[in-house]
């Protein structure tokens, strides 16, 4: 097989995989609309995906906000427009960095765990066991993860927005000596509800991507412990990639 063929078959495989992931998502969506939903399971996943990701999301967001303030201050100082740092920090966090960074972190943390757990269940026949007990594995395993992802990603993003803006404020006001009142006015004047809401919509889509991709990879694990490892890596790589790709289209669509 020459390199051209290899690229071709890789691309076909990739597209095929995306198609299967979409189908899995639609199925999960269908099942999520059929009551009863296992509330206990959803809660458990919300804790797994959401609550446990809070510390790492906060740390990432606060340092991102601080770096943003530091970097943009250097530029704006040359125009005597230091107060615009607030605008830049707020806009880039709410529209872009908040949802994307949260998505990537959750993909690495919760997505990997999800794929590993489901992968293990697949290779030890636990998923088959579910089917034999007249319980649909998609409904029992994927739906709670999907719903939890859809709900928790936006909430984590809100945290990330808020703490990031706070970090930027701290650096700009306490370290770089920007007028705090003007800084906050520049932040609130140019920030609009649609910026925040658009960012949250993005996060919702990222939540869907992470949950669906990780579950897909876990569900399709083959070949024992090694397969579980592969599934885990694959889940993180693919969901991170899809987050970044879809981010472009979401940005073009929403804003």
């Amino acid at each position: 097989m020459n390199w051209l063929e290899r690229i071709g078959s890789k691309t076909t495989k990739f597209i095929e995989e995306i198609g299967r992931i979409c189908l899995l998502f639609l199925q999960a969506l269908k099942w999520s609309l059929r009551p009863p939903l296992g509330f206990r399971n959803i809660l458990k996943q919300m804790e797994e995906i959401g609550v446990r990701s809070v510390p790492v999301v906060l740390i990432t967001a606060v340092s991102t906000g601080m770096v943003l303030a530091l970097q943009s201050h250097t530029g704006f100082k040359r125009f005597n427009a230091e107060s615009l740092v607030g605008t830049v920090v707020a806009l880039s966090l709410t529209r872009e960095l908040g949802p994307v960074l949260t998505g990537l972190i959750v993909a690495g943390r919760a997505g990997a765990a999800m794929a590993a757990e489901l992968g293990t269940m697949r290779v030890t026949e636990q998923i088959d066991a579910l089917s034999t007990m007249a319980t649909n594995p998609i409904k029992y395993l994927i739906v709670p993860r999907l719903l939890a992802g859809m709900l928790m990603l936006p909430i984590l993003t809100i945290f990330s927005d808020a703490i990031g803006i706070a970090g930027g404020y701290f650096v700009a006001v306490k370290v770089l000596d920007v007028n705090p009142v003007v800084y906050m006015r520049r932040t609130t004047d140019f920030l609009e509800f649609d910026d925040i809401f658009g960012g949250l919509l993005k996060a919702l889509v990222f939540g869907i991507i992470i949950a669906t991709v990780s579950c897909y990879k876990g569900f399709n694990t083959e070949g024992g412990a090694e397969g579980v490892g592969k599934a885990t890596t694959g889940a993180v790589v693919l969901s991170s990639m899809l987050i970044l790709i879809s981010d472009y289209f979401l940005t073009a669509m929403l804003f």
Binding site: L43, K44, M46, E47, G50, V51, V54, L151, M152, P154, I155, L156, I158, F159, D161, A162, T188, L191, E192, F193, D195, I196, L200
Partner: peptide, 27 residues
């Protein structure tokens, strides 16, 4: 408890979001 932790995170998120939407104004 797990319920309390999840509830706390959601509640905090809702609070921050409403605070932010009301301060940015225009909405």
């Amino acid at each position: 408890s797990a319920e309390a932790r999840v509830g706390l995170v959601i509640l905090l998120g809702a609070l921050i979001l409403s605070y932010m939407t009301f301060t940015v104004g225009g909405y």
